[in-house]
């Protein structure tokens, strides 16, 4: 141990818009082609063009110790409490309840990039490199 504080594992949350919804759940969790339910995944070209997927792969590749989660915008039961707690924790409980609630509500914006609860930008606007840079900046700010 060198006495320095161990770097905290950053949690990056990418909020997937529901307009990205593809096939339904259940037996049709896979590809729907020509209206027919098929087992499998999306074509590689489609996967590679997906903005959330691009950002997810970039952060995973460059920051392997970061905890990267893709969360559906409708998953309020996860987004609200975890963002609220993350904001409070990051501020050392100094963030007020109202400010933390506002941050939690903002986390339900489609395309949000959240770093330990802090909103740092929009996936589509930033692009994969921009998301990576924003995550790095947010981490650096926390570690300093």
């Amino acid at each position: 141990m060198d006495g320095a504080a161990a770097p905290t594992v950053t949690r990056v949350v990418l909020v997937r818009p529901w307009t990205d919804g593809r096939a339904g759940g259940g037996c049709c969790g896979g590809e729907v082609r020509d209206g027919v339910c098929r087992d499998g995944t999306h074509p590689v070209e489609e996967l590679l063009a997906d903005p959330v997927g691009q950002a997810w792969r970039a952060v995973r590749r460059e920051l392997p110790d970061a905890d990267v989660q893709v969360v559906d915008v409708a998953n309020t039961a996860y987004l609200l409490p975890t963002t609220f707690r993350a904001v409070r924790r990051r501020s050392g409980e100094r963030a007020g309840v109202l400010a933390s609630l506002r941050a939690a509500a903002r986390a339900t914006t489609a395309g949000s990039v959240l770093v330990d609860g802090q909103w740092v930008g929009d996936v589509a606007e930033l692009g994969p490199d921009g998301v990576l840079a924003a995550v790095r900046r947010a981490r650096a700010a926390v570690n300093t």
Partner: peptide, 17 residues
């Protein structure tokens, strides 16, 4: 893992879904 169909996800997130 592709970040689209196959995404390792926190168990609380998956439970919500």
């Amino acid at each position: 893992a592709d970040g689209v169909d196959f995404v390792p996800t926190n168990k609380h997130v998956v439970f919500g879904h």
